[in-house]
Amino acid sequence: MSKRGKKDRTAMIVAIVAIILIIVMGLTTGQRNNLSAIEKWVGNIITPIQGVFSSGINIVGDNISKLVNIGNITRENESLKLRVEELEKQLISTELNRDELEELRGLKFALGYVNDMDTNEPITANIIGKAPGNWFSTFTIDVGEKHGITKNSIVLASNGLVGRVFETGDNWAKVISIVDNDSSVSFQVLRDNKTQGIISGSITSELSGYVFDNLSEIMVGDKLITSGIGIYPEGIMIGEVTAVENNSNQLLKTIQVNPAVNFKRLTKVLVMGAK
């Protein structure tokens, strides 16, 4: 027999003996307090191996537990992300609804300007298009002739005068606002209706004009309303005077006006349909 065969046979015998001793130790451990020298020797050999094996099992178990926990956390994160996205959509919808409600409430105040107008019931319209630029100098609304809208129908916002309709279709109309350079409005000073004049828009969408009487006492801070001369009824808020200048060459008193309506932000308007 070769040396290798002898070694394998010896190793097998040792293994069998070790197994027998382990069985004996298991059966007798609960019955004896003292172990034999051989049992101690076998125990000294087997115990470290058991420790390593046990540690390996614990490490594998811990890693499996961590993987399971990571999977659960990932699923929870995905669920939370979906919930956050849903809440963000609800918040945006709520804000839009609130803004629209506030705008509609504001338009109700505009009705105070037109109680005596010879028109049908006012119509709320959405702005669906506008000319290029930051200002709503001209724009398109989603109501037209089928809704009783005609050329020169008056257009209002919550704070005051917007302009007039200049072109109509069945379900749409185009509006020219008072800040457009082709627009002009006759005005009177709210605190003194004898002080009157005309204001016009400009290519920069700014309001400026002059008073008929250069001796009139008009001042910064004066509020201007429509005078009733022309197509606009009397009493609609136009804006506030921000500057007054005496033009000695033309013997005119010129003014700069800040419009009551924010012409950089319009989404809804009130249109007065003709009877």
Score class of each variant (00 low, 15 high):
I49P: 03
I49V: 11
F53E: 05
S55W: 08
G56N: 13
I57Q: 07
I57F: 14
G61T: 08
D62M: 12
N63F: 12
I64G: 03
S65P: 02
K66P: 02
V68R: 12
G71N: 15
N72F: 10
T74L: 10
N77F: 06
K81E: 10
L82P: 02
E85L: 11
Q90S: 13
L91R: 11
S93D: 15
N97D: 09
R98E: 14
R98D: 10
L101Q: 10
L101K: 12
L104R: 15
R105Q: 13
R105Y: 08
R105P: 01
R105C: 02
Y113I: 00
D116K: 09
D116G: 03
M117L: 13
D118A: 08
D118E: 13
T119Y: 09
T119P: 15
E121N: 14
T124F: 06
A125T: 05
A125I: 02
I128R: 08
G129F: 01
G129R: 05
G133K: 09
N134M: 05
W135R: 10
W135Q: 07
W135T: 14
S137H: 08
S137P: 01
F139V: 07
F139N: 02
T140K: 15
D142Q: 03
G148T: 02
I154Y: 05
V155C: 09
A157M: 02
A157I: 01
S158W: 00
N159S: 05
G160R: 04
G160V: 00
V162N: 04
F166L: 03
K174L: 04
V179N: 09
